[in-house]
Amino acid sequence: MFDLAYFSQTLVNGLSVGCIYGLIGIGFCVIYNASGIVNFAQGAFVMLGGMITYVLLTTLHLPMIVAGSIAIIVVALLGVLIERIVVRPLWDRNATMFVMILATLAVQIVIERTTLILVGDQPKSIPVFTDLPPIRIGGVSIGYQTLWIIGVSLVLIALLALFFQKTLVGRAMRACSINREAAALQGIPVSRMLALSFALSAALGAIAGILLTPTQFTAFNVGTPFAISGFIAAIVGGFGRPFGAFLGGIALGLAQALAVFGLGSGLKNVAALSVLLIFLFLRPSGILGAAK
C-alpha cells in the first residue's frame, strides 16, 4: 500500500543529499570552466571537510563554527597546493584530459591513504549543528541538519551567483571558461584563476562534507562515491554549468530516493547510474546545456 508519509520523507532525504551532490558537482564545474580539467580529487575534499572538523572537535575541542571554518580554509589551501604541485606542471605541458584525470585520481588515492594512516579506518561523525528534535509536518520528520544542508546550499548558490555575475574576479573566471586565450590577452592572470578555482571547489567540497557528516559519517574512503555522484550531477546539469550541476544534484538525489522508495536501497546506485545513462543517451548536454 502506498505510504504517503514514507514517500514524502524519502523525497525530503533525497532533496537533502541532492544538495550535497549539487555542491560537489559545482566544484567539478568551477575547475572545469577555468581549466578544462575534470578533477576527480573532488571527493577527497568532501571527506577531508568532515574529517578535519572531526579531528579539531575531538582533539582541540574547538567550537563547531571554528572547527568547520578552519577545515574549510585548510581544504581550500590544499586545493591550491594540489593545483600548484600536480595540476599546473601538467597543464603547462598541455597534458591531455586523460592524463589529468589519472593525475587527480592519483591525488584522491594519496589523500585517502594518508587519511587512513593518520586517523584509522573507523567511521567518524560530528554532532548535528542544532541539537533539537526534528520538526514534524504531517507524518514527515524534518531534522534540523536537513534544514542546514538545504539552507546553506541555497545561500552558497546565491553567493556564487553574485560572485560570478557581479565581481570582476568572478567575471574574469567566466571569461577564462569562455575563451582562455582571449582572457589572457586582457591581462587576466589565467593561471591565478586556475588556483582560485581549485580553492573555491575545495572549499565547496569541504562545506558539503561538514554539512553531511552529522547525518551520515565520514571515513577515509567516502570520497570516491561522492566524487562519482557529484560528477553525475555535473553531467546531468550540463557540464560546466555550476547552477545546472546543482539542479543535476537535486535530480540525482531525488532519483535515488525514489529508487529506495520503490525498489529498495540496494538499487540506489543503479538509479544514479541509470539517470546518467538516460541523460547521456537522450540529452548529453544536460539540463541547462553543456558549457563546452
Binding site: 567575471r171 567566466r174 589572457a184 590577452l185 591581462g187 589565467v190 593561471s191
Partner: peptide
C-alpha cells in the same frame, strides 16, 4: 606569459575577435 605581455601595454585583437559571447 600572455597576461604579463598584456600588462606591459600590448593588446592584441585576435583573428575571430575573441569576444566573450555569452557576456
Amino acid at each position: 606569459d600572455t597576461s604579463a605581455i598584456a600588462r606591459s601595454g600590448i593588446v592584441l585583437v585576435p583573428e575571430g575577435r575573441g569576444i566573450f559571447g555569452p557576456m
